[in-house]
Design a protein around this nucleic acid. Structure first.
Lengths: 219, 219
DNA sequence: CGTAGTCTTGAGTATCCTCAACGAGGGTGG
DNA sequence: CCACCCTCGTTGAGGATACTCAAGACTACG
């Protein structure tokens, strides 16, 4: 598979591909950070995914891309693979076919995890969950330390919050002792429980699967 | 592939699989409606996906499921396929391997479309986008008519809103002339533009890809 | 040293959630 | 048959949260 790879380096805000571009390549992050985004009908930039080293992207059924992907920081390096040759190669190699399948599933579960974060109601919960996600995904060795290569604006557009709210949430989390800031872009996680469910008494769950009602009570 | 299928019918709220169940099968919706959900740390039910006829689900890399899937209405029918035999069969059949890959990609793009809905800021936008999504996915012949098999509670947990807010948004959309209600669960779409970007002056977008700032202005 | 981008904080307002009540429809049992 | 219960859907009032607008500090860079 790597025999087909072409590696390129990107500076900040350089587009790797744009929405509506022909989708004839797959990509893999080598290092740095990229963001997958679109502009909504209401005119907001919505970041759909942050792409970290090891992540594949550009996967689609359609023949053009739905989103734009650009580098979030200088020195972002991506490998790209021509799609047709790759699929042809997979036709003769079940192992590769299986790998490509798994790559798709990995992207899928990343999206589902994302949905759970966006589905949180309060800003504190969203930011807390985001920090935990980044701690999980960017294994910096220590599970405590989180490096945030992206700006607060990026985080805001990722969580569908305003920049100010993100900033306030980070400040609040620090003041409540859940995290410590080591500069603007480095965070030490002190209390995971606070980030997961932000100060929630968390009553017992209901028993039966009988009805749709009860579950949505409780914020 | 269909030679491996087993078809079952489910009554309302019957679980097709539960979170943490072994993930040894894939599923395909035949008819009816199912919901994929989990309960967040804060105790809310978050519906991650509505599953409509033709949709595949249960796809994962892990050996247990992350979410629970249950039937949202009586008479929901699903086909299920044993995972290992299917993958073995794919090893010898590139065409099938390709199909399985495409199934994964379809689920992925469904999730990305979902993210865009959840990322909307106002309740009117979320509900409007939801109606358009349902109109798109459940092809009822007419592009105008939308059938909503799920309850308002389900919609609320899907959009991360309260039931009351969903209800009010639907009422507002009707009073503003964007939709017409034909009973509680049937909607006629009058003005798509209103649903897409809810009363948005929509100024021109900025030009350069130079910075992250400008895009997040505008709600 | 000025400029541009980033990040934070404050004040006021709009939106959405909570709590509460009520009506409609369906099923069950006296 | 009708009372009763349960779920669903809707509406109103009040309060909490996040957004908007505005200003200022900090950093990097030419």
């Amino acid at each position: 598979m790597e025999s087909l790879a072409a590696v390129t380096s990107c500076h900040r805000s350089e587009e790797i591909y744009a929405s509506e571009d022909p989708a004839d390549r797959w990509y893999r992050m080598v290092c740095g950070l990229a963001r997958k985004w679109t502009v909504t009908a209401a005119g907001q930039r919505q970041i759909v995914d942050f792409l970290l080293p090891g992540d594949f992207f550009g996967l689609t059924l359609r023949d053009v891309h739905d989103f734009t992907v650009d580098a979030a920081i200088d020195g972002t390096v991506v490998a790209c693979y021509p799609r047709r040759p790759l699929e042809l190669m997979a036709d003769g190699d079940p192992q590769l076919g299986r790998l490509l399948r798994e790559i798709g599933f990995a992207a899928l579960s990343r999206m589902q995890a994302r949905l759970l974060i966006l589905g949180r109601t309060s800003a504190l919960q969203k930011v807390g969950a985001f920090l935990l996600e980044m701690a999980e995904r960017s294994q910096t060795g220590s599970r405590q330390l989180v490096v945030l290569p992206m700006s607060r604006y990026d985080i805001a557009d990722y969580l569908a919050l305003s920049v100010e709210t993100v900033s306030r949430a980070v400040t609040d989390l620090e003041q409540s002792g859940a995290i410590t800031l080591l500069g603007k872009r480095r965070v030490r996680i002190i209390d995971r429980a606070v980030l997961e469910s932000d100060a929630e008494p968390c009553p017992e769950r209901r028993g039966g699967a009988s009805t749709a009602t009860a579950a949505s009570r409780r914020r």
